[in-house]
Amino acid sequence: MRLLLLATPLLLAACQTENTSGAPGTSPDGFTGIAEGETIRFLGTEPFWGGTVKYDRLTYDTPENPEGETFPVKRFTGQGGLGFSGSLDSASFDMTVTPGDCSDGMSDRTYPFTVTLKIGEETRNGCAWTDAQPFDGPLTP
Rank of each mutant, 00 (worst) to 15 (best):
E69W: 08
T140S: 07
P66D: 04
I34A: 13
E18D: 04
G30Y: 12
S85T: 14
F93Y: 10
D56P: 02
T17N: 10
R124A: 12
E64D: 15
S27P: 08
P112M: 01
E67M: 01
R109P: 07
T116I: 05
F76T: 01
S90E: 11
A35W: 12
E67V: 01
G30W: 09
A23G: 08
E121N: 14
F48Y: 10
T8A: 13
P112G: 02
P28W: 05
E38N: 15
F135E: 05
F31T: 06
E69Y: 09
G105S: 06
G80H: 09
G51I: 00
N65K: 13
S27H: 07
L5G: 11
M1C: 02
M106H: 12
L58I: 15
P134R: 14
T98Y: 07
T32P: 13
F135V: 09
V73R: 07
G80E: 06
E121F: 10
F71P: 06
T96W: 05
A14L: 08
D108K: 15
G126Q: 03
D131M: 00
T98G: 09
L58M: 15
Q16H: 11
N19D: 04
D104N: 08
T8D: 03
C127S: 11
P72C: 11
A23W: 01
T116M: 04
T110M: 02
I34K: 13
T39Y: 11
C15S: 12
C127P: 02
E121M: 13
A23F: 02
L117E: 00
V115L: 02
F42P: 00
T96G: 06
Y111F: 14
M106R: 14
T59A: 06
P24E: 03
S85E: 06
M1Q: 03
P134S: 14
L117H: 09
I119P: 10
D89Y: 12
E67T: 04
T45H: 07
L3E: 11
